[in-house]
Design a protein around this nucleic acid. Sequence first.
DNA 1: GAGTGGTCTAGACCACGAA
DNA 2: TCGTGGTCTAGACCACTCG
Lengths: 240, 240
Amino acid sequence: MAKYKDIVKDIEGCIRRGDLQPYDQLPTVVEMTKAYHVSRTTIEQVMDELEKRGLVSRKRGSGVYVKKVATQSFDKPLNTISLTDDIDANLAKHPSCTVHEFTVVKPDEHVRHELGLHEFSFTFYIERSHLHEGQAIDVQYLYYPVEIFRDIRLTSAETSIRQWIDENYDVTPDSFHKTLRAVTASERECEILGIPEGSPLLEVEQIGYLDDGRPFESLVARFPGDRSEYQTIDSDSLPV
Amino acid sequence: MAKYKDIVKDIEGCIRRGDLQPYDQLPTVVEMTKAYHVSRTTIEQVMDELEKRGLVSRKRGSGVYVKKVATQSFDKPLNTISLTDDIDANLAKHPSCTVHEFTVVKPDEHVRHELGLHEFSFTFYIERSHLHEGQAIDVQYLYYPVEIFRDIRLTSAETSIRQWIDENYDVTPDSFHKTLRAVTASERECEILGIPEGSPLLEVEQIGYLDDGRPFESLVARFPGDRSEYQTIDSDSLPV
DNA sequence: GAGTGGTCTAGACCACGAA
DNA sequence: TCGTGGTCTAGACCACTCG
């Protein structure tokens, strides 16, 4: 484990426990290098990470300050969909899906383009829903290039495809390009999700890349609007 | 301008122009230190930035590779709402709003909590829509603490509040915590936006922080689902 | 002017991937 | 085994904030 990650954990703990209060100034960078017996670069790396997690603001010439964050948002996961707590917890423990479709197809041009495939390429196509207490809580549409994954099993689609890939292929997912939209549920999706006609859904279109730059996964996931949200932190504002 | 930013621009240019093709390996980090006459740290900083922009993948022990990115997504702005191109371009040049409401209020508990205010605090409250060719294209609900901004003008709400703040207060916005949701447009919003009853909207709730850790802005913006999307890149996947 | 964070250097060691 | 990127050091200079 890298040193800077340990220090991140330590300081994050201080903030969560309240040893560091909102608006408190952290020790100066130089002080921290001494306290942790590391170099300046390492501390800057730590500050980068704490900033990314939304815990501190850095003011050049002045200091690093603990953000006054609404405490409710403290433990919400970032950069992913969160559902209600009980559902999230349950899914993490026992991922379970009902698979509506599992085939090999020639994907349409949109998907082909996303995955950087040729016209004559094939992909696995999976349509499925995660379950919580017997109820579908999302609808997912997934494409995997046959060129990369020659064999994907139905049983993996019923639990975790990513786990199957980890165990059977020597590839490393690296990053994900996401597009979020609000859409109206189709009739079929309303049935599956047990929601009224015309309900709004939060759609996440996600293209996954391996660490050698190849796209390996195209995913469209749709979640009922009233049970889902997506949280993120960055330095870009909507135009105001 | 920091050196690493120049190098980022240079390499990004190479990728956009096609001098570096998808799946190409970049020169090794050591080679780049020589080519640009900088130290290793600087190059790593450059790679951090290129990775954040979704242009490259880094494979420890192997190399840095140009991602095969769907070219359409190349120039879309990240970490913000994008509308259709003509609207985006127009808004950037001539931001213009119709203000539906402009008052000072005691905000409800939710906003008070987001902004870290006391029960007896007041905020400016602004409700407005951006216009494109006379048509409203969003609805925004904004709160600004009177404690921080004693004076906000109606005219600023009709163009750019952030510009007004820049020019009249010595504060520096630092980061934004966002929550995205899909919601159904209210009757009033349908009227304002000229969309059918029950249309889905993409909602962005955004809390802005200053560089000293203070929240300074609470914004809820809602966009018609069929004209808006939000793009982002990170290393976190939805559960698959 | 004194103190802060941001960037940068030159060099080192390590973990990992590929052959 | 060897070349790759990831992390780290000790020290430096600079831009910025604030009294």
